[in-house]
Simulated scan of single mutants.
Amino acid sequence: MATEAFEELVETFSFLDEWEDRYRHLIEIGKDMPPMDPALQTPASKVDGCASQVWIVPRTQDGRFDFIGDSDALIVRGLVAVVHSLFAGLPLDEVGQVDAAAELGRLGLQEHLSAQRSNGLRAMVARIQQHAAAAR
C-alpha cells in the first residue's frame, strides 16, 4: 500500500549495500526537502518523543493527505522525508491502513537507528495517522 515515491525509495535503498551509503542517501533526501517556514515551527507542530526537534504540519487537499515537515538534525530530516514519501498523496482513509513498521522495515533502517530515533520515527507516524483519522 506504499506510494510510488516510497517504492522508488525502497528500490534505491536496495542498491545501497552498505549502511554508510544508506545513511548518506538519507541525509541527501532530507536536504532535498523544501524548507519549512520557521513560523510553522510552533509547539503545536512539534512532534513529542523525538530526541531532535521535529515539526510536522499536516494538511489535506481533495481528500488526500500531505504534510510539511522539518527537523534540526540532518539524519532526522531525512527520516521526515522518508515518512513523507510513505504517506503524502494517499487518500485520508488509507493513511491509517498503512503498516508503517513493515513498510519502513523494507528500508533496513531499524538496526541502524538509535532507540531515540526509532521512537521519534514512531511518533511521526502516530501524529500523521492521528491527523488523518481526525480529518476524515
Rank of each mutant, 00 (worst) to 15 (best):
M1F: 07
M1G: 14
E4P: 00
E4Y: 09
A5Y: 02
E8C: 00
E8S: 13
L9H: 13
L9I: 09
V10D: 03
V10F: 03
F13P: 01
F13T: 09
D17C: 00
E18M: 10
D21W: 01
D21T: 02
D21R: 11
R22F: 09
R22S: 10
Y23L: 06
H25Q: 14
L26T: 14
L26G: 11
E28Q: 14
I29D: 06
I29R: 01
D32F: 00
D32G: 13
M33Y: 07
M33W: 04
P35I: 04
P35Y: 11
M36Y: 10
P38S: 09
P38D: 13
A39M: 05
L40I: 03
Q41T: 09
Q41H: 03
T42L: 01
T42M: 04
P43W: 12
A44M: 04
A44D: 15
K46F: 10
D48I: 00
D48G: 13
G49K: 09
A51S: 12
A51L: 12
A51I: 06
S52A: 15
S52R: 08
W55E: 06
W55P: 01
I56D: 07
P58T: 10
Q61W: 10
Q61T: 13
Q61H: 14
F65I: 06
D66E: 13
F67N: 10
I68P: 00
I68D: 15
D70Y: 09
S71D: 13
D72G: 08
D72Q: 05
L74S: 15
V76L: 07
R77E: 12
G78S: 08
L79P: 02
L79H: 07
V82A: 08
V83F: 07
V83Q: 08
G89N: 09
L92P: 08
L92R: 04
D93F: 03
D93G: 07
V95E: 02
G96P: 01
G96N: 04
Q97F: 03
Q97E: 15
D99M: 01
A100D: 04
A100W: 05
A102T: 14
G105Q: 11
G105L: 04
R106L: 08
R106Y: 03
G108P: 03
E111H: 12
H112S: 12
L113G: 09
S114K: 03
Q116S: 15
N119I: 01
G120Y: 02
G120W: 01
M124H: 07
V125W: 02
V125K: 06
A126V: 09
A126I: 00
Q129C: 07
H131L: 00
A132G: 12
A135C: 05
